[in-house]
Write a protein that binds this DNA or RNA. Structure first.
Lengths: 339, 339
DNA sequence: ATGAAAGCGCTAACAT
DNA sequence: ATGTTAGCGCTTTCAT
């Protein structure tokens, strides 16, 4: 028994009456040379003690290790990131990789703390889906330390790590096309205060598309949310409903579904009808968008998780290979909220 | 450089021109006895090489280790479990514990595979929120191996592990009271095919409460779902809408919010109105219930995660202490779907 | 058929 | 002020 009072290989060896070597060999399926009786005795002793090899000791010794990666998401309560994680998990568990998940609450400071913590824990790599500036010192630290990372969804500016990105240009364009087609009254864009580069691209593409359709800038209003949550969405929603109380027709696009879903509530509370008086559109195609009849842009998030894990695994295996960037197409999902 | 071409303490020692001991001491903040210049040189060398102590080697040696626990949930895409994980995370990161999360897709076989995998990885303990029979051989294995675990939410029969449970008796009673108060037409109960013991309790309490209100058993219909997902909910929902197509008033309770949300869609597609023609009620108070105006029973899920982590941590520290069972109260959240 | 011994990377007691 | 040495639990080479 060691300090954790877990049985060690020594305990098994003593109990079985064979050397440590013999036990190790048999337990690692390299004991063909031992007579069946010996094998049985060793197995029995291990079983009886409830022995399992100490992970750290084993990994210290072994050339081919069980790997551990860190996964950073802004909000694990958001099913969008739940699905992302599912995609990651599906891939890694066939590759002897475990994932330590961390939800940062979209808080840069927390993200930093967790990232730092996981570096100290010497994880083998990262999948980062939280907003990190491409100039973020921690990203540079990862580079200096040769810890591979895959940036996902919320990042575009980084020029070093492997990346999974979505075609925001296309997404923004699809939004604009659809808004132009269904538009009624003024158009309201609900965007975040802090914009990662991909979101900037998305919004810029929306504006460009709207301009193409000759929609005057004066007919477009901007509202900001502090973070991408339902709560924040409801808050701006109320503001919008108040500001446009007298207006009988409105068109709203929110930068993501969570915010759009939050706005939904404000619209109801203002006794307006979707889509009759307010057309509403989101972005992401979260699991719940379908049940809220929300028109949105679909991102293949589970697949993206899968691919991110794959990129990281391959990078782990070949640190010198060329930088990979995978771009995903998106599509418009039209539902009742803009009928 | 070792086999992962990560720098080791040896590399740092060589580069700094001091012994391994000196480096180790200084890097672990135990180097007060060394002159500032030495400390500086060592820090600089470590920094330059991007050195971080190998986790496994360090943990092999140290008495007071960084711990790792396994967290099993049925569906991480379900925000209910996202919030659970948030609660767990909040607690453990102040306790030098990391969590490996695994989402089992409500699949017993997967749950078994992952649990087995994590045992082999010699994690220090488990928080289990997936449905596992109290007689499950893996639970017994955990007991034999003295690996502590906390059972959560979906389990009641186990007589060994620490537990966080909710007062299902109370929950079922609240459901029945509310159904009786708002009821119109026949009452439909949508329940899972496979019922863990807590869900059995919940459902039994609903039936008992209904009986108390003199509602004849003939006016209560049962429908079953294969799993607790929105998809399964929509499927039964369609069946219900078909079976009761001619009926102008209906009352439905679903065993959880996900299923209720799924049913929502079937009701819409059948062009029925909630709550005018169909009253609908769920269970869990998932984040989205509020935005879908779903009447439900609130479970303090984040707090439960927090407490589960706390129980596990304390158990890790004192394996012999008395078994703990924490019971959580629930409450009725009345919303538009039963107005 | 079995075991002794070396060594993975690290920390810490104990010299010097 | 610094280094030598032992040892954590494990796997593996090499004897016997």
């Amino acid at each position: 028994m060691n300090q954790n009072n877990k049985p060690t290989i020594k305990d098994v060896s003593r109990k079985a009456g064979f050397s440590i070597t013999t036990v190790s060999q048999i337990l690692n399926h390299k004991g063909q040379r031992f007579p069946p009786e010996t094998q049985r005795l060793v197995q029995a002793a291990a079983e009886e003690l409830g022995y399992v090899a100490n992970f750290s000791a084993r990994n210290t010794r072994l050339a081919t290790q069980q790997r551990t990666i860190g996964v950073l998401v802004p909000q694990i309560q958001n099913p969008f990131f739940g699905n992302l994680f599912r995609g990651i998990q599906d891939y890694i568990y066939n590759e002897a990789i475990d994932a330590i998940l961390v939800s940062t609450d979209s808080d840069q400071r927390k993200a930093h703390r967790y990232l730092e913590h996981l570096i100290q824990r010497s994880v083998d790599g990262f999948i980062i889906a939280t907003q990190l500036d491409s100039q973020d010192p921690l990203l540079q630290k990862l580079q200096r330390m040769h810890i591979p990372y895959v940036l996902l969804d919320q990042n575009e500016g980084d020029e070093v790590g492997d990346q999974i990105i979505v075609n925001e240009q296309q997404g923004g364009h699809l939004v604009a096309e659809h808004l132009a087609a269904v538009k009624q009254g003024p158009i309201i864009l609900v965007v975040p205060q802090q914009q990662s580069s991909n979101i900037q691209t998305r919004i810029a593409a929306v504006r460009a598309g709207l301009a193409q359709h000759q929609i005057p800038a004066a007919a477009i209003y901007d509202y900001q949310v502090a973070d991408l949550t339902k709560l924040a969405g409801t808050a701006v929603g109320k503001q919008i409903m108040a500001d446009f109380a007298g207006v009988s027709a409105l068109t709203i696009w929110a930068v993501d579904d969570e915010v759009a879903i939050g706005i939904t509530k404000a619209i109801q509370q203002a006794h307006k009808q979707i889509p009759a008086t307010v057309k509403l559109m989101g972005y992401d195609d979260t699991d719940y968008a379908e049940y809220l009849n929300l028109t949105t842009i679909h991102q293949p998030i589970t697949t993206m998780g899968h691919k991110a894990a794959e990129l990281l695994k391959e990078r782990l295996e070949d640190p010198t290979r060329l930088r990979q960037v995978i771009i995903n197409d998106v599509k418009l999902i039209q539902r009742g909220s803009t009928k």
